[in-house]
């Protein structure tokens, strides 16, 4: 038996909205540790890893490990039927072929349940090695989303270069070129607006903007985004979900010709 109750049900809807454009079908892995998903996008260029810890839920019960295969698009459609302030409860039997989403309005006057059929999905779990990154940038997630969107009007790829002076996002295209530089700054009153650059050595890598724009769909989940880079390694774009976990996206850099 799996049962998980989330007062802020809207959180799961935001999570689905931040994954469904990249991944069609995936397994949610339920265990006593929590509720997790790891999946590659259809072109196998990027990897999503999201994890919600069991202690972040108001109630969490998972008698035995369970892998729930779902169409993310269909699950997102169901979660769209949830009110913004609803409490969400997910339930699934150990050997069942469906998962139930129950939505309770804050005043308890409306209770609805939606059942989603599960699918068998073959997926290999990848091990992600711990890495000491050359540079890690923490910045407002909305600023990162804006930069990726703005640069997409000019080019298809972005060069992200971290130096001690700041982080520069550059692109070129048929109509011209663009650069946005963000400098580190702290703001005691508004920590969500600060930019923190932790650099061991300068690093510059090129990425497809299409993917970064998909990752930025996670912006509503967190005020800040953390971008970690090392030479010739995938970038990690991580959104921390307060008191619960994170969603992290891995994207391989473009190879120079």
């Amino acid at each position: 038996m799996f049962e998980a109750r989330l007062t802020q049900g809207v959180l799961l809807r935001k999570l689905l909205d931040s994954m469904k454009d990249l991944v069609q079908d995936a397994n949610f892995d339920c265990s006593s540790t929590g509720f997790a998903l790891q999946a590659m996008d259809s072109s196998h260029v990027s990897l999503i890893h999201m994890q919600l810890r069991s202690d972040g839920f108001d109630h969490f019960r998972c008698d035995r490990n369970l892998s729930m295969g779902v169409s993310l698009n269909n699950m997102a459609k169901i979660l769209k039927c949830m009110g913004n302030d609803d409490v969400l409860t997910m339930k699934a039997e150990d050997q069942g072929d469906s998962v139930t989403f129950m939505f309770e309005s804050a005043n308890q006057e409306r209770i609805s349940d939606f059942e989603l059929k599960l699918m068998d999905i073959d997926s290999e779990q990848l091990g992600i090695p711990d890495t000491d990154y050359s540079a890690t940038v923490k910045m407002p997630s909305a600023e990162f989303a804006r930069i990726c969107k703005d640069l997409s009007t000019i080019g298809d790829t972005v060069l992200i270069a971290v130096t001690k002076d700041g982080v520069r996002f550059s692109t070129t295209g048929d109509i011209g070129s663009a650069n946005v530089t963000v400098r580190s700054h702290s703001n005691v009153d508004k920590p969500e607006e600060q930019v923190v650059i932790d650099m061991q050595e300068p690093v510059a890598l090129t990425f497809a903007l299409r993917y970064l724009n998909s990752f930025a769909k996670a912006t509503p989940l967190s005020n800040q985004v953390m971008i970690s880079m090392s030479k010739e390694l995938p970038v990690v774009v991580q959104y921390r979900i307060e008191d619960m976990g994170h969603i992290s996206y891995y994207l391989a850099p473009k190879i120079e010709d």
């Binding site: 260029v45 990027s46 990897l47 779990q125 850099p253 473009k254 190879i255």
Partner: peptide, 14 residues
């Protein structure tokens, strides 16, 4: 995808 290694090649299969 052109100019890009598959992401799985950076990780190991569990």
């Amino acid at each position: 995808l052109k100019g890009q290694r598959p992401i799985s090649s950076f990780f190991f299969v569990k």
